[in-house]
């Protein structure tokens, strides 16, 4: 008899526990695995340790990325200057347009493989992907908005309430959640399926032209544009003259004279799509870029990268071959990937 009662009470207690458990966690997350492409190094800092990657977080991040309400006039979204068809750079723009017909002061970089980057922006001013959106959101010549206003706007939208709940467990819309969701989207923009990658995986072959271009690349370019990410994340002075905006680059952030005119080495992946080139977008074609490296490096600068002190001698044929090779870094599956496109497009 006693035992029977004991068990019935235990059973009731168990049910009560289960009830509490289910009402507390009625949100079902769909975990996402961050995949490291074959042959690539692990990302230097795992940005998804504290910010658990889920499908719901990714989708929320995507909605925010394409939402003009992040800007003061409602017109400028992240995607305005980071267009998927241009590998998330700003197609055909040296500088981008902010609110009130303003212009940015540097060329909008392509967004890809950000999880492998150790800093962000041409001068490396941003130390973590999660806090990067704060810069364009609040800059008067970009989205020109205040963080609290952004939150007020998106809190009014019931679809955001639903999506924040799906991604984070409840409807609280905080700055941290917004920034982490954006990171789940941008940190997942991985481009690793170019012809170059296929060749490396043994799924395709370079043409003779491309192969010779690759050899040239390895001699003159690969030390800074290091494979497989095609950047070594360093800051270097590649011999451009001080531009009309007096942009001294890294030195403005590090306060070090020796960093004058140093800029972050950009990745060359999808380089064909991310023109114009250099931090101020003053070179419009890859031909001009290679001509710059052949003829126009300002060797008088004291902070010039040592690797560029010796003149680069390339024939016209080698130049063309090099460009053929650079074209193999275009990843058409990346720019056409529907997962990265706004919903309904």
């Amino acid at each position: 008899m006693k035992i029977k009662y004991f068990f019935s009470i235990l059973l009731l207690w168990g049910f009560a526990c289960l009830f509490v458990f289910f009402t507390e966690s009625n949100v079902n997350y769909t975990p996402l695995q961050f995949e490291i492409p074959k042959g690539w190094p692990a990302p230097p800092n795992n940005i998804f340790t504290k910010n658990k990657l889920t499908e719901e977080g990714f989708q929320l991040g995507k909605k925010l990325f394409y939402d003009g309400r992040l800007s003061k006039d409602g017109e400028v979204s992240c995607a305005s200057c980071h267009q998927q068809f241009a590998a998330f750079s700003n197609y055909d723009h040296d500088f981008s347009h902010g609110i009130n017909n303003s212009f940015t002061k540097r060329n909008a970089p392509a967004l890809m493989n950000l999880a492998w980057m150790t800093s962000f922006h041409w001068d490396g001013a941003i130390n973590h992907l999660e806090v990067q959106p704060l810069a364009p959101i609040t800059a008067s010549n970009e989205m020109g908005e205040q963080l609290d206003s952004v939150l007020l706007k998106i809190r009014k939208d019931s679809s955001y309430k639903r999506m924040f709940k799906a991604a984070f467990g409840d409807t609280v819309i905080s700055s941290q959640r917004m920034l982490r969701a954006l990171t789940q989207f941008t940190g997942n923009l991985v481009s690793s399926n170019s012809k170059y990658d296929k060749v490396k995986r043994g799924e395709a072959n370079f043409t003779e032209f491309e192969k010779r271009g690759y050899e040239t690349f390895k001699i003159y370019c690969a030390s800074c544009h290091k494979e497989p990410l095609f950047t070594d994340n360093s800051f270097r002075n590649n011999g451009q003259k001080l531009n009309r905006l007096n942009d001294i680059g890294r030195a403005a952030i590090s306060n070090k004279k020796e960093d004058s005119l140093k800029f972050k080495v950009p990745s060359l992946r999808n380089i064909e799509l991310s023109f114009p080139y250099m931090h101020d977008g003053h070179l419009y074609s890859l031909y001009q870029v290679i001509d710059f490296y052949r003829n126009d490096i300002d060797t008088a600068q004291t902070s010039l990268d040592p690797s560029l002190k010796r003149k680069i001698i390339l024939s016209e044929k080698e130049k063309k071959e090099l460009i053929w090779f650079l074209s193999t870094l275009t990843d058409s599956t990346f720019i056409k990937n529907k997962r990265y496109a706004p919903d309904g497009k």
Partner: peptide
């Protein structure tokens, strides 16, 4: 805490004590 991404509480960037253009 200056370089660990988006924070909450006293360190929430909403408190207007975070440099947006030069993290920290």
């Amino acid at each position: 805490d200056n370089c660990s991404g988006a924070q909450t509480g006293a360190l929430d960037p909403l408190n207007d004590m975070f440099w947006t253009w030069n993290s920290g």
